[in-house]
Design a protein around this nucleic acid. Structure first.
Length: 431
RNA sequence: UCCUCGAUAGCUCAAUUGGUAGAGCGCUCGGCUGUUAACCGAGUGGUUGCAGGUUCGAGUCCUGCUCGAGGAGCCA
């Protein structure tokens, strides 16, 4: 027999006597009877304490309970329609494990800044706990899919000597007296690892020092970066849609309780089935023109354009073959149309924007050398990267998936700052 | 970096035309034997973000600053 029970396992145990360990979320008094809501991380249960049924010590301990006090409660499990969840604990004994005075978070509403300032306590609330559980399940699904399809986890360094793409802002650090940077993408390293292991993926934190201040941006976020040898552009898209579909299906099956806590409408998720629609950049321009949002060829999409394009379909949509001029140096031009790159963004529906960005990489050593020059990138820094084309270069592709954006969309959350335990944003590096 | 909005009790907010800073929640005390963010009564609580200005008088008007939120750009 277990010494204590998880609250999630209580249902069905009636009329057994059990012990539960947890925290008091709130309690109500009605004179000679107290109702204490207890949370243990697996669920919440109502403990009922009657003055005439317990010792004086237990009664006094119960009367003195405060919000978030840690307690040990023993009692009989019983079904009762009046109890939230249908099951409650008729208490025989209650003891304080850890006191809690003047808990800052009340059951009433709070503002964003106050909650983020108390993020270490905010995570105790049912909604935030559900988000973190959903995140864990999504990460599990991503890794299960990749592991089951022959991808080898091979993480690139987080401390890097130079910008991977040379565009976005990096966080600099002092590396034994030399300048170094926190990785903003492991992609170039993943290409090297794909030449060694075939199919690889990285799963780790990524750092961007951009002064982005929106509900879609974090300074530190987690990214999955698969890289696949002998994989062309079209196959790359298939991997992406299979992965995203698998994650959604897995979450529907295994995280339904979390989605329910979040009030997530499941119908849009059920429509996420491969293959996803594909819209070329040119076709996208046409759709935007029809919708009264005309752009000139070569223009980048703004947030409003992405939201509109994402809203056209019930599943995520690929926008592919962007003008090459503004894209990363390593992206392969379309052989049939060199002015566009074999790159695609995957836009989530319901206004969540880009969740994946991927491309086929340049395999020609001559073209890659030319691109490095055109982008004014130092040849010596990228010499090791050129080696990948000098020694057995093959067609290869890969993509980067933003974990927090995926979680935000799947959970239909307002802001990515809730999808990670302790968000690092432009204005917050605390707690 | 730019645009918009905001900052009043521990929290969420109110304060009419420039005229005595309030409510709910929290907390403390009391009441209540089935509560559901319990309820009822009493109490507690303020350098109105900071600095200056206008005025008989500023939470309110003006200037500068600080901090925050949303958005743009950039991106996952």
């Amino acid at each position: 027999m277990k010494e204590w029970q998880r609250i999630a396992d209580l249902s069905g145990l009636e009329p057994e006597s059990v012990t539960v360990l947890g925290w008091v979320t709130h309690h109500r008094s009605s004179g000679r009877i107290e109702f204490v809501a207890i949370r243990d991380g697996t669920g919440e249960v109502q403990a009922v304490v009657r003055a005439d049924a317990v010792s004086a010590e237990t009664w006094e301990a119960t009367r003195a309970l405060t919000q978030e006090a840690a307690v040990r409660v023993s009692g009989q499990v019983r079904a009762d329609a009046r109890a939230p969840g249908g099951v409650e604990l008729l208490v025989g004994e209650l003891a304080l494990v850890g006191a809690s005075a003047d808990y800052p978070l009340t059951p009433k509403e709070h503002g964003t800044d106050f909650l983020m300032e108390h993020r270490h306590l905010w995570v105790r609330t049912p909604r935030q706990a559900a988000v973190l559980r959903l995140r864990a399940r999504i990460i599990h699904a991503i890794r299960a899919f990749l592991d089951d399809h022959g991808f080898v986890l091979a993480d690139p360094p987080i401390i890097t000597p130079a910008a991977a793409e040379g565009t976005t802002t990096l966080f600099g650090i002092d590396y034994f007296g030399e300048a170094a940077y926190l990785s903003q993408s492991g992609q170039l390293y993943m290409e090297a690892l794909a030449m060694a292991l075939g199919r690889v993926y990285s799963f780790g934190p990524t750092f961007r020092a951009e002064k982005s201040k929106t509900r879609r941006h974090l300074s530190e976020f987690w990214m999955v970066e698969p890289e696949i040898a002998f994989c062309d552009f079209d196959e790359n898209l298939v991997w992406q849609e299979e992965l995203v579909s698998y994650v959604v299906e897995d979450v529907l099956r295994h995280a339904s309780r979390e989605l329910e806590t979040l009030g997530r409408d499941l119908d849009p998720l059920k429509k996420v089935q491969p293959p996803f629609p594909r819209l070329s950049y040119d076709e996208a321009l046409g759709r935007l023109g029809e919708a009264g949002m005309p752009l000139s060829w070569g223009d980048d999409f703004g947030a409003a354009h992405e939201t509109y394009l994402g809203s056209l379909f019930s599943a995520p949509v690929f926008i592919h073959r962007f003008p090459a001029a503004h894209k990363a140096f390593y992206m392969k031009p379309d052989p049939l149309r060199p002015e566009v790159a074999l790159a695609a963004d995957l836009l989530a529906p319901e206004g969540y924007g880009e969740i994946v960005g991927g491309s086929q990489r340049i395999d020609s050593p001559d073209l890659l050398a030319r691109r490095l020059q055109e982008h004014h990138l130092p040849a010596d820094t990228y010499d090791w990267y050129m080696d990948l084309r000098r020694y057995g270069s093959v067609p290869h592709s890969g993509f980067g998936l933003g974990v927090e954006r995926l979680v935000a969309w799947v959970g239909k959350l307002e802001h990515v700052r809730e999808t990670i335990p302790f968000a690092r944003t432009l204005t917050r590096v605390w707690p």
